[in-house]
């Protein structure tokens, strides 16, 4: 058992920590800013829709909605910058495991998974901590955020940036900002909501991004490779008892559910769990 915080849920099932607290806070911050940006941004894109008027008046008119949009955008940009800074720092200090970086194996997983869907394979391929679908969404989210932050900054300071990038790029930024927003919202509503809320295997909600935990049982089925990595001996209960015993022998306090982590996993980029 290496480097993972264990706990038990209310039913006494053993759980691994999937997302540390600050990742969960980051996720909630993203939910809030993203929602605000959508609610204040889309009525500007679809200015002639009747709901645009209703929505904007909720925010106190166009000018107030724009101010809110810009503030939320700046907050979102800071979140994006922090997120990337953690990855860069983590990569330099080697304290981060790049569990969300796509690898050739992900392509093979996708192919095998499709074969499984078509009935050409009896079982799903063994997935790592984050499977190819989650990596796709995560990378999409990071790339999309970069595009939104960049074009958003250009649109916020058109005079200053126009001198550097030229007038035509201003028009292109506007098109990119507005289309990327549509893409982001569609992926979120269709793909993320399906995989984290509506999919039969997680319905009614995959809570791991909110309580940070996933049961070892679920981990074993859905992220088998990660399970095997964490519990190479194959029986977490036995391993837990061993660690627990050592802890007690050291005179440490705490219940079995608070097993100490040898090396807390830090800096794993957030992703919604499927």
């Amino acid at each position: 058992m290496k480097g993972v915080k264990l706990s038990r849920d209310r039913d006494g099932r053993l759980c691994v920590e999937r997302f540390p607290l600050w990742r969960r806070v980051e996720h909630i911050a993203v939910i809030l800013t993203f929602t605000t940006l959508v609610l204040t941004g889309f009525p500007q894109k679809f200015y002639d829709a009747s709901w645009a008027e209703t929505l904007l008046s909720l925010f106190g008119g166009l000018d107030d909605a724009r101010t809110i949009h810009r503030v939320a955008g700046i907050v979102f940009a800071v979140l994006t910058a922090l997120h990337l800074a953690v990855i860069v720092l983590g990569a330099i200090t080697k304290r981060i495991r790049m569990s969300l970086v796509p690898t050739p194996q992900d392509l093979r997983d996708a192919w095998q998974n499709l074969r499984f869907y078509f009935g050409l394979r009896e079982s799903q391929p063994k997935m790592p901590k984050f499977d190819y679908r989650q990596k796709f969404e995560y990378i999409g989210m990071v790339m999309g955020s970069l595009i939104m932050v960049l074009t958003g900054a250009i649109l916020l300071w058109p005079v200053e940036t126009g001198g550097i990038i030229g007038g035509e790029a201003l028009a292109a930024s506007r098109i990119a900002h507005s289309n990327e927003a549509v893409l982001a919202l569609l992926v979120l509503v269709v793909w993320h909501v399906y995989s984290a809320v509506l999919a039969p295997d997680v319905f009614p909600l995959d809570k791991s991004m909110f309580n940070g935990k996933m049961t070892v049982e679920e981990l074993k089925h859905r992220h088998t490779l990660e399970y095997e990595r964490l519990f190479p001996a194959g029986d977490p209960e036995v391993e837990l008892a061993e660690v627990d015993g050592e802890a007690k022998a050291d005179g440490a306090e705490g219940a079995a559910s608070e097993a100490p982590a040898a090396k807390p996993e830090e800096g794993e980029p957030k992703t919604p769990a499927v």
């Binding site: 058109p158 005079v159 126009g162 030229g166 007038g167 201003l170 028009a171």
Partner: peptide
């Protein structure tokens, strides 16, 4: 605004 700004139009 700098020269060239009008190309946004």
């Amino acid at each position: 605004v700098p020269d060239g700004f009008q190309d946004a139009w």
